[in-house]
């Protein structure tokens, strides 16, 4: 009996140690990630300042010129445009689902959102090539009198918008659900219509939450790789319109990884690109999460 007891407590001890070790692994992970990428990019940063690299569009790896500007601008275009498409759709749908829709609509929409969120990015890419690319080159571009292959910034943004919709929508539904009923009732009892209540009370109250849902959407869109890579055209030039090909940062990393191994500086440049991606995403995530937590505290 005594031995059994020791065994039990020893086992508990071992479990506890493993739990703490695992937790440490997870908590250290982002730091190791950041440091690892930084160490690799030092080589390039010693030669040129970050500022120089970010504001030069001269990308000729073989002669040692690594200007990230055209990639950064492509990333900004694609991200901003996809948010512009996905944002209003998510906002409208979230209001519809939380305030107007019947219960069965929600019951359909939950699996729809889940499945959409679970579809692998390569499948979105295939869909983009099958549907969006011909759609853009055959129907949309001719309206503006432009001839294009269909592999454009706009195509990438549409595909990306569909990918971030389930993500933004999920957060937004939660945000709207958290608005206290008393608030709406007070507004309704003062004679406001349902829409006025939503417009002037609910949206205003949910505003920080909405912004942070957008922020998380941005960080998602910024790092998305394969799907965008497949449809965006990948031409290393500063894009000046939505019907031009772009070359976002993640696509740059993915496309060149195989060939850069022989040139240490090239390797370093791509690692720096990954580090930039990492930092931008972390900052957006951080700010959005803080905003969400703040607004949760206020409503509670």
């Amino acid at each position: 009996m005594a031995r059994f007891r020791i065994g039990r407590h020893l086992r508990s001890r071992i479990h506890l140690v493993w739990m703490v070790v695992s937790l440490m692994i997870i908590l250290l992970l982002p730091f190791i990630l950041g440091i690892g990428l930084y160490v690799k990019s030092i080589l390039l940063l010693e030669e040129k300042s970050l500022w120089e690299l970010l504001f030069s569009s001269d990308w000729r790896p073989l002669s040692g010129n690594f200007g990230f500007l055209s990639f950064a601008i492509s990333s900004l275009w694609v991200t901003a445009l996809s948010l512009l498409i996905a944002g209003p759709i998510c906002l409208l749908t979230a209001i519809h689902l939380t305030h107007y829709a019947k219960k069965w609509v929600l019951q359909i929409m939950h699996p729809v959102i889940d499945i959409l969120a679970g579809i692998p990015s390569v499948i979105f890419g295939v869909w983009g090539i099958l549907v969006i690319v011909p759609f853009i080159s055959r129907y949309v571009a001719p309206i503006f009198g432009i001839e294009t292959s269909g592999y454009t910034i706009l195509t990438g943004s549409i595909v990306l918008a569909v990918m971030i919709i389930p993500f933004i929508l999920n957060i937004m539904i939660d945000v709207f659900k958290m608005i206290p009923d008393e608030l709406k009732e007070a507004s309704l009892s003062l004679g406001a219509s349902k829409w006025q209540t939503i417009k002037l009370v609910v949206i205003r109250k949910a505003f920080p939450g909405i912004i942070s849902a957008f922020g998380l959407g941005i960080s998602r869109a910024f790092g998305e790789t394969i799907a965008v890579l497949m449809v965006v055209g990948n031409v290393a030039k500063i894009p000046t319109g939505v019907f031009q090909a772009g070359y976002p940062l993640p696509a740059l990393i993915a496309n060149n990884y195989g060939e850069m191994l022989s040139i240490p500086m090239y390797d370093s440049a791509l690692m720096l690109a990954a580090l930039i991606l990492f930092c931008v995403v972390l900052i957006f995530n951080f700010l959005s999460r803080i905003l969400i937590m703040r607004s949760e505290k206020i409503t509670n």
Partner: peptide, 24 residues
């Protein structure tokens, strides 16, 4: 705090993990 941390990690793009994994 741990949850917050995990949420931050959750958002890191997979290509960054890929590049990091390659370095390691």
């Amino acid at each position: 705090t741990i949850r917050f941390f995990l949420d931050l990690l959750w958002g890191i793009p997979s290509i960054v993990y890929g590049a990091f994994g390659f370095t390691i």
